[in-house]
Design a protein around this nucleic acid. Structure first.
Lengths: 207, 207
DNA sequence: CGTTTGTTTGAAATAACTCAACGGGAGTGG
DNA sequence: CCACTCCCGTTGAGTTATTTCAAACAAACG
């Protein structure tokens, strides 16, 4: 009996284009092939906080397969190429296709753990520790997805983006970067980053 | 054909007793009947951050059914009574028992949303806003579970606990409480809390 | 080539922290 | 029943990390 593989449509987004609006119904999730995206929340007075970061090679918002709904907006941080994974995969439930479902559950569990980690970062770490934690997290995830370029990796985030991830001011993010650079811990030019020592970086992140 | 209902064992814990240690394998989850618990993380230098709060009537760590593992420790904040929900419920997958599974998935989705909300609170809100958000969240959840006592509700958290939730110092938590009390927004005595106006409280939480 | 977006820096203001001390209440043991 | 301890709440004074405001500069962009 032939079970059809789920169909994968390709789609692309411009920078700052929405992948989902708050409250919108969703009948598919994304897998990012190229480019970065994030989920965020804006308070009434304009304060903005990014609550999830999606890197190339990762599943974006796997929990939509359970909730069928985007609770928060998702927007492209860079130009983006993605494939869609439709709800038909959710029917794998009935088809005993754990092989299709496991990556989705896995991504959900990872998301849950990463969010817990960010609560720790925001609640209990200094500015420098938060930024080092972010850099180390990005480095590790890009490496896991085979996205290192020599001893460097893409860092397309602006200092405003980073500020909205680590819960600081863009100005202060800039000062921390300046200090990390001065001490030779990182090198960052034209959206490409190098870090001297990943293990040392993890220490600085107070992991 | 008779499908057996999942068996529910009752168990109880003392305050500060662990429901799970970090990294431990788990073959069941809990439903809290009475008492509060939390998941937390301690950094090497002792800084502590609570990343999830579990109130009476709620499922505790539903994602264990997927991961079979406690990534972070869970501890009782008060004396605790709970029932267990075993892995056999996970087999509901194969039995098409969505009726058993839905509450679990629902709890997972709620946990995910609450965590996102806390990232916003910690990243972008002032001390008073964070504490009001916590009070409002607790009030709402207790009300949803029918745990209000007249116009009051149980608040067994110490100011140390609260500090570790909202990412502040116990001393500063105390000062914020003092100010909320002075303005007649809350009343708190002998572990029982009253709030003047839930809607106003939500406003103070910067929503 | 002008415009916009992002980075960098300085000086002053402030929210939250640290340190230190005291007081009350709840157990506990004599 | 008292004394002792421990935990928790409370308060004050001084310090610091981060923000705010303002401005200039660089880079990307159409």
């Amino acid at each position: 009996m032939a079970v059809p593989e789920p169909k994968k449509d390709v789609c692309s987004f411009r920078r700052h284009q929405y992948l989902a609006r708050a409250g919108e119904a969703q009948d598919h999730i994304y897998r990012l092939e190229e480019g970065w995206a994030c989920r965020f929340r804006v308070l009434r007075d304009g304060r903005r906080q990014i609550v999830a970061l999606f890197l190339p090679g990762e599943l974006c918002e796997p929990q939509w397969l359970l909730s069928h709904r985007a609770d928060l907006p998702v927007v492209a941080l860079t130009p983006l190429r993605a494939t869609t994974i439709g709800m038909d995969v959710a029917d794998a439930h009935q088809q005993h296709r754990r092989d299709l479902l496991d990556p989705v559950y896995d991504a959900m569990l990872q998301a849950l753990n990463r969010q817990a980690e960010w609560i720790v970062n925001l609640g209990r770490k200094t500015a420098a520790e938060r930024i080092c934690a972010l850099i180390h997290d990005i480095f590790t995830r890009l490496r896991n997805n085979g996205r290192l370029i020599g001893d460097r990796f893409a860092m397309p985030l602006t200092q405003y983006d980073i500020a909205d991830i680590v819960g600081l001011t863009p100005v202060h993010v800039n000062r921390v970067f300046k200090s990390l650079r001065r001490e030779g811990i990182i090198d960052l030019k034209s959206r490409s980053m190098w870090i001297a020592d990943p293990t040392a970086m993890q220490q600085l992140a107070a992991e």
